[in-house]
């Protein structure tokens, strides 16, 4: 019932006019503004809160992420079921996901900001994030230089295509979504009971 690609959002002519390039860009500006506003209010543009998470002292980051995931999930799947939105599933490439993920983590600890929260940091006047942003641009370029080679090599190791837990687990899709919600809510409860921040 919620296969990616099965329920396809049909865009009417009126809607297409609404999502013309210009309004698309305007929507990006509005949504980006709200995103940055929320990140700053959540404290995740702040070095010690992000590092505190990696040091297991402050659990703000995980609390925000898990809440966003739970709320997002219980909206996106019904919307997709009724063909109001498309899913955007990135392909699973085990070697690249793992190696890239670990590299990302190492970099994250060195900077203390991630790509989105660096924007929030600069917005609130944590100017050191500007060095991080410059590094992000340089690192993106380095990847682009190597992208042809990487695509032919590591990307092919463990390439499983577009995969979600909805098609991996031998359970009805609604059961997977409800269990995931319950599991993540349970983890949040543990955090709420045992942590101060």
């Amino acid at each position: 019932m919620v296969d990616p690609g099965k329920a396809v959002k049909k865009t009417s002519a009126a809607e297409r006019a609404f999502i013309s390039p210009l309004t698309g860009i305007v929507a990006g500006i509005v949504f980006g503004f709200v995103f940055g506003f929320l990140l700053q209010k959540g404290g995740v543009g702040t070095y010690h809160i992000l590092m505190g998470q990696l040091l297991f002292q402050d659990w703000t980051v995980v609390k925000i992420m898990l809440t966003a995931i739970i709320v997002g999930m219980i909206g996106i799947f019904p919307l997709h079921h009724f063909a109001k939105v498309n899913l955007h599933i990135k392909p699973t490439k085990l070697a690249s996901n793992i190696a890239g993920g670990l590299l990302f983590g190492v970099g994250f600890a060195l900077v203390g900001y991630c790509p989105g929260t660096a924007a929030a940091a600069v917005g609130q006047g944590s100017w050191d994030a500007l060095f991080g942003m410059a590094g992000l641009v340089a690192g993106s370029w380095l990847y682009a230089e190597m992208s042809g080679t990487l695509k032919q090599t590591i990307d092919k190791v463990g390439d499983l295509g577009r995969l979600t837990f909805l098609n991996v687990l031998p359970l009805p899709k609604w059961a997977v979504i409800i269990s995931a919600t319950a599991l993540l809510t349970g983890f949040l409860l543990v955090l709420e009971i045992f942590t101060v921040h």
Binding site: K90, P91, K93, S96, N97, A99, G100, G101, L102, L103, F104, G105, V106, G107, F108, A109, L110, V111, G112, C114, P115, A118, F131, G132, M133, A134, G135, L136, V137, A138, G139, S140, L142, Y143, A144, S147, L150, I154
Partner: peptide, 13 residues
């Protein structure tokens, strides 16, 4: 760190 992070992000997707 920013360089490593961007490279990792692009690799991981």
């Amino acid at each position: 760190g920013g360089m490593l992070m961007a490279f990792g992000a692009r690799m991981a997707g």
